[in-house]
């Protein structure tokens, strides 16, 4: 039985051109937690996300997922455990029809043909996109593309859902649908986002990253109420939190 835990221990990473992107990142995300990963552009969020799917490996330090270290020989297991929704759905959708795209991951997992239809349609229904099944992805709207991309990942039944800027390019209604949808998921969720209102609604915990380091890690409400911390990390108090009294909650 796996425990759907993500554990980072002092991860450092430098790109080949020696830009240091991660400078000692540590955290532990437990089973079923929803965690927002926030930070300014270039803070290291995307670099960190790439570690979760084993597209990058730490220069030093260790990343454990489901109890196993993320390294080359564990990649198939890691990629089965982690479902990654990319920032740009156009990078993710590439099969000729939505149905085939959602089926892509399942076929790679070796799901038998008899089960395929049911699992694909179940995933599409979850995101409210069953009617798109035979449409070519490049003809869909941004919101529909996002839904199809999420279905493609959900179909694989990952333990941990990782999303990169899931609300970018979404209209308010699609964004609202996504929030409602995410709230129904029992997965461990890690969501990198600049949409702090969205983070506030979907994640009870927030990790702030600034210049490759974790500068804060705690309940979302507390972190978003700490204006000094937010300013220092090039962030801004979310709109929906503006009405809060200053230091309504004690920050740690």
């Amino acid at each position: 039985m796996s425990h759907h835990i993500v554990e980072a221990a002092n991860i450092h990473y430098s790109y080949p051109d020696s830009t240091a992107a991660l400078d000692g990142v540590s955290f532990r995300i437990g089973h079923g937690e929803s965690v927002a990963l926030v930070g300014e552009n270039g803070a290291g969020k995307s670099t960190l996300l790439r570690h979760f799917t084993g597209c990058l490996f730490p220069s030093s330090g260790m990343l454990k997922i489901d109890g196993g270290v993320v390294e080359k020989k564990n990649l198939p297991a890691v990629r089965r455990a982690v479902g990654m929704v990319f920032q740009n759905p156009d990078d993710q959708l590439f099969m000729p029809t939505v149905f085939e795209d959602v089926a892509f991951g399942l076929l790679n997992m070796g799901v038998p043909a008899a089960e395929l239809d049911g699992r694909v349609m179940a995933a599409l229904q979850t995101v409210g996109a069953a009617h798109l099944r035979s449409r070519p992805p490049y003809r869909l709207s941004q919101g529909e593309k996002r839904a199809a991309a999420i279905a493609g990942v959900l179909a694989m039944a990952p333990d941990i859902l990782v999303m990169d800027e899931p609300t970018s390019n979404l209209d308010p209604m699609s964004r609202r649908r996504l929030i409602t949808l995410l709230k129904t998921f029992g997965h461990t969720k890690i969501i990198a986002t600049h949409d702090l209102d969205f983070a506030l609604e979907t994640c009870e915990r927030t990790i702030v990253i600034h210049k490759g380091r974790v500068t804060a890690d705690g309940p979302t409400v507390e972190i978003f109420n700490d204006e000094r911390l937010l300013t220092a990390s090039s962030l801004e108090k979310p709109m929906s939190a503006r009405a809060w009294p200053q230091n309504r909650l004690k920050t740690s």
Partner: peptide, 8 residues
């Protein structure tokens, strides 16, 4: 990368 993430 997106393809790899889905087990390509």
């Amino acid at each position: 990368r997106a393809m790899l993430a889905r087990g390509f």
